Amino acid sequence: MKFTRPLAAGLAAAVLSLLSACGGGSGGDDPPAANMGTLGLSLTDAPTCGFDHVNVAIQKIRVHQSATATDSDAGWAELNFSTPKRVDLLTLTNGVLASLGQIPLQAGHYTQMRLVLAANGGSNPLLNSIVPTGGSEVALDTPSAIQSGVKLNVDITIAANQLADFVLDFDACKSVVTAGNSGKYLLKPVVAVTPNFVSGVSGYVDSTVANGATMVSVQQGGVVVKATAPDSTGKFLLQPVAPGSYTLVITAPGRTTDVVTGLTVAASTVTLLNGATSPLSLGVSMSGTAAGTVTTSLTPIDASVRATQSLLSGEKIEVATRGVDATTGAYSMTLPTSAPMVAAYVAPLGALSFAADAGAAAKYGLEASSGLATKTAGPLTLTAGATTTTNFTFP
């Protein structure tokens, strides 16, 4: 994917000199400056599930033109941090980005990125850590495979004398999982690498749901493209989001799900869904629980489960997703049993007319994923105050 901005030759040379001093570059003879471009990287996050802080320590970022290159192959370019860059992911919602730096690269197409995390230990056992809501800080275990580099498939084209600006979108909700009843947490990074589009969506929810438990997302075909949590005023900003047509979904514990279909995002524009004087109020709803276990041959267990609903229009939306417990495979999601409220998008700041999609009330599909495999169940009909158990088994 090509997403570039002009970069003056003098600035490119300065960046190259600075990054080389910091450990950037692939080593050996540098290609001629005329064939060089720059990859700019930032970090952002989706809302998390039940945590006040999620801290990760980034040691380096590596990129390669081959999707199959191994750690020891030649041709890697790197952005190194002499001291691990420790970031609280939960400060990076609502359009907030943390700059990671820039990597000078030979012009060409790059298809692999490795995110290398530093390990806990020594004088800093909480380098990677989490703070559960209402709890104390505990270590976030990073398996050795993560420390050697989380492989990310990318589609990045570097043009000569151009800056390609990309964002690492870290999904903390899917990336942090429990491991049994010991109070141990594991980090299994789920990261998307996307162009840093200016375009996005902004709006407001009512102050009664302006909390960290409310999630606002834009989706396509039931797949979340970008998600965030409203700030304390109820404002939300989903950015960067590519131009296109989306379904906006708002969920909150004990509330109905609000859905806006046909939401249009134009290039270089932040679409204003509604203003502070007309915030979206989610109705109160009873809830049921979808729970069960996922069994795999992997140790630790690496799987996730998501709950979806099919609307009268035939469109599918994701309502919730969870990573399963890495030791037991258990998962649990509390979901509204009232009908989702659906409105068609009309225009920026236009009046939205919501109506209950009665046919979807309390009905959910479940999708369990492990590796490249996915298994489905449903539609299930949940009962308020009760638990519906669904188990999944992978080879």
Rank of each mutant, 00 (worst) to 15 (best):
A360N: 05
A355W: 12
T295I: 05
V305K: 01
V324S: 09
E315A: 10
D302A: 15
S370P: 00
V324K: 00
A344I: 11
S310R: 15
G365F: 10
Y331D: 01
T299V: 10
S332H: 04
F354S: 00
G292R: 07
P348A: 03
A290R: 12
V346F: 04
S278C: 09
L311K: 10
A330F: 06
A356Q: 13
S278A: 15
A373G: 06
A358P: 09
E315C: 04
M286I: 02
T374V: 15
E318P: 08
A326D: 00
A373Q: 14
T296D: 00
A356H: 10
K375L: 15
S338Q: 14
T271S: 02
T277D: 13
G288D: 02
S332L: 03
M341V: 07
E318C: 14
A355C: 08
A368M: 09
Q309G: 08
T374I: 08
V284G: 12
G365I: 00
L280I: 12
N274F: 11
S285N: 13
L312F: 12
A330T: 03
A290T: 04
L349C: 05
T321C: 13
P340G: 05
P300M: 00
T293G: 07
T295E: 06
N274T: 06
P340D: 02
T308N: 05
T328D: 07
K375G: 01
Y331V: 01
S310I: 11
G329N: 10
A303F: 04
Y331L: 03
R306I: 02
N274K: 07
V284L: 11
I317Q: 04
A362F: 10
A361H: 13
T293M: 04
T337F: 14
A290M: 06
A368D: 07
T295M: 06
G323N: 04
A276R: 13
L366M: 01
L349Q: 11
E315K: 14
L298R: 03
V319I: 15
G283R: 14
S338Y: 11
E367L: 12
P340R: 11
G329P: 12
A351D: 01
F354E: 01
A377W: 08
T334R: 13
S287A: 15
N274I: 06
T269Y: 12
A303D: 01
T296F: 07
T269V: 14
T374A: 15
K375D: 04
S297Y: 05
L282H: 06
S297L: 12
P300K: 00
A360K: 14
S353P: 07
T327M: 11
S332C: 08
A307M: 01
R322Y: 10
P348D: 03
P300C: 01
S353H: 12
L352E: 01
A326S: 08
T299H: 12
A303L: 02
Q309I: 03
